[in-house]
Amino acid sequence: MIRGISLRVNGVAYNLHIQDHWTLLDVLRAHLGLTGAKKGCDSGVCGACSVHIDGGLALACLTLAAECEGCEVTTVEGLARSPHELHPLQASFVFYGATQCGICTPGMLMAAKALYDRDPRPTREAIHDAVGGNICRCTGYAKIVRAIEHAHVFEASRLLDPKALMQAQGEEAELLAEESR
């Protein structure tokens, strides 16, 4: 059955006509053009589709779009604070080499953000718990865990500017790395 829903995604309001059985993931990807959340298993196992619904972590592939009536959805596309200011987790992932193929990265970031919002200086155990439902096949997780551990260092840092971050090398980067150890 087709129904109309209203929801907000990354701060933008949408009125959509959807089928009852459509998942939030398919609606985000195929209908809203938000392909950041990935379909790695479509069965709630890999975590690549992780998003936030009303501030809480959710798997978009197990969520029916119809359930999102009136909800505020945040995807990885909505994680940066502005086009010129990354979220500290994003800067940290770039800086510490936490992304390889990158297919798990959006889900990892959203799972990490749920933790970061509660505790920006988490223990390793808390990080392992937080990303326990996110599979990465490339990195062996070490750099992901480190990036989450040290993300807080980037708060208010000049390196939240994407351009500055990509040019970061030499002393500035070394100093920051030192500080974060």
């Binding site: 950041g36 990935k38 080499g97």
Partner: peptide
């Protein structure tokens, strides 16, 4: 230890994979 040149795309959701093509 330079950052990967595709890292920004990958942390912002901009990186386009085959299934992202519509």
């Amino acid at each position: 230890r330079l950052p990967r040149n595709d890292a920004l795309q990958k942390v912002t959701g901009d990186a386009q994979y085959a299934d992202d093509i519509y």
